[in-house]
């Protein structure tokens, strides 16, 4: 029996799937849907999963429908998309840099977004702490910050090409710089603004609206498709520079493209969900353990895992200390960091 399934679409697109990977993907989709239904049914107003599912499709009590459609659905969708985007951004970076430590957080991309948001809050607030411009510009600020930080890292790490390790080190430096700027901005402003910024830094999908979803969805979904198309380049990059060049890849150009891709994904996620950490680090590792490192299967698996993580973290944050909400980023960190240590502990090579 053949162990692999090969999918070819035209001349430029092909994936191959381990049969096990197909089963894993199916299981993850089921888990995501299950969590989705639980999540929209939970919170201050409880519903059974059945009621929640019914309300989702326009049946059931009117109040249920209102709560779900206006409050919970956008929130859960934003969490889901943010998780997917961060996980794929991390997977692409790790493949490209060939370093298990690489992730949007480590490379300073998240840090740039955070600094930009704190700067935005400081710049456009008047004495009464009301913003002088619409809050809807905040995602744009986050996105610009992420892009600026990525650009800075890329430029500073460039030296006759982009050595992956140098990229990571420069990224660590830039992220320290962004952190210093963030602290500076928080300290010079009044304390309530620091508090407001801090919730955002930790990462929370609280208060997500349909407007957010409609801005985020085309961006994230489009980029995820691009990532799938770029998957084969990541496969080649992962072999190391010599082999990649030997195979005829335009290594540096692909690398620029991949950095842009993961920045755009991170920017999109961070702009709407804040600095949720460790998803980009953790999801790709788990996915690799589940389905191996061929990117055709790895990317969707990582994406689904990331979505499940952030949805789960958001759900836990809503339920654990209800009615107080804990930002989702606290949970992703609380799970992510020990997992990371476990990875280190397990890996023989280190």
């Amino acid at each position: 029996m053949k162990k692999y399934i090969t999918v070819r679409m035209g001349k430029h697109i092909s994936f191959f799937y381990d049969k096990k990977a197909v089963a894993v993907l199916a299981a993850l989709i089921a888990a995501a849907v299950f969590l989705f239904v639980i999540s929209i049914g939970s919170g201050e107003m409880r519903m059974s999963p059945l009621e929640a599912a019914a309300a989702l499709f326009g049946y059931g009590e009117e109040i249920h429908q209102t709560v779900i459609v206006t409050f919970r659905l956008p929130r859960v969708l934003v969490a889901w998309m943010a998780g997917m985007a961060l996980a794929v951004a991390g997977a692409v970076l790790q493949g490209m840099v060939r370093n298990p430590l690489a992730s949007p957080d480590v490379l300073g991309i998240t840090g740039g977004a955070v600094a930009a948001v704190v700067g935005f809050l400081a710049l456009f607030s008047d004495e009464n702490n009301s913003l002088t411009v619409s809050i809807h510009w905040l995602p744009l600020a986050a996105f610009l910050g992420a892009t600026a930080a990525a650009w800075l890292v890329y430029m500073l790490a460039w030296k006759n090409g982009l050595a992956p390790l140098r990229l990571v080190l420069v990224g660590i430096g830039v992220s320290a710089l962004m952190q210093a700027l963030t602290t500076l901005l928080m300290i010079t402003g009044p304390i309530y603004r620091a508090s407001q910024a801090n919730v955002w830094i930790t990462g929370s999908v609280y208060g997500a609206s349909w407007q957010h979803v409609s801005l985020m969805a085309p961006w994230v979904i489009g980029l995820l498709l691009v990532a799938m198309l770029a998957a084969r380049h990541v496969n080649v990059q992962e072999l190391g520079d010599e082999l990649a060049i030997g195979l005829g890849g335009a290594v540096e150009r692909q690398r620029l493209g991949l950095v842009l891709l993961s920045t755009a994904l991170t920017g999109g996620a961070v702009a709407f969900a804040g600095g949720i950490g460790f998803v980009g680090l953790m999801a790709p590792h788990m996915a690799r353990r589940l389905v191996g490192s061929a990117f055709g299967a790895l990317l969707p698996t990582a994406a689904l895992l990331g979505g499940v993580f952030v949805m789960g973290a958001d759900l836990a944050g809503r339920l654990l200390l209800a009615p107080t909400e804990i930002p989702a980023g606290v949970f992703t960190a609380a799970i992510g960091a020990p997992y990371f240590i476990y990875l280190l502990y397990r890996s023989r090579k280190l």
Partner: peptide, 23 residues
């Protein structure tokens, strides 16, 4: 690096929920 990241995130989380401590 991992331990530092864990502690930093937990600190961040606690501060996000407690404005007085943050101050």
């Amino acid at each position: 690096t991992a331990v530092a990241a864990l502690f930093a995130s937990l600190t961040q989380g606690m501060l996000a929920m407690n404005e007085k401590a943050l101050e």
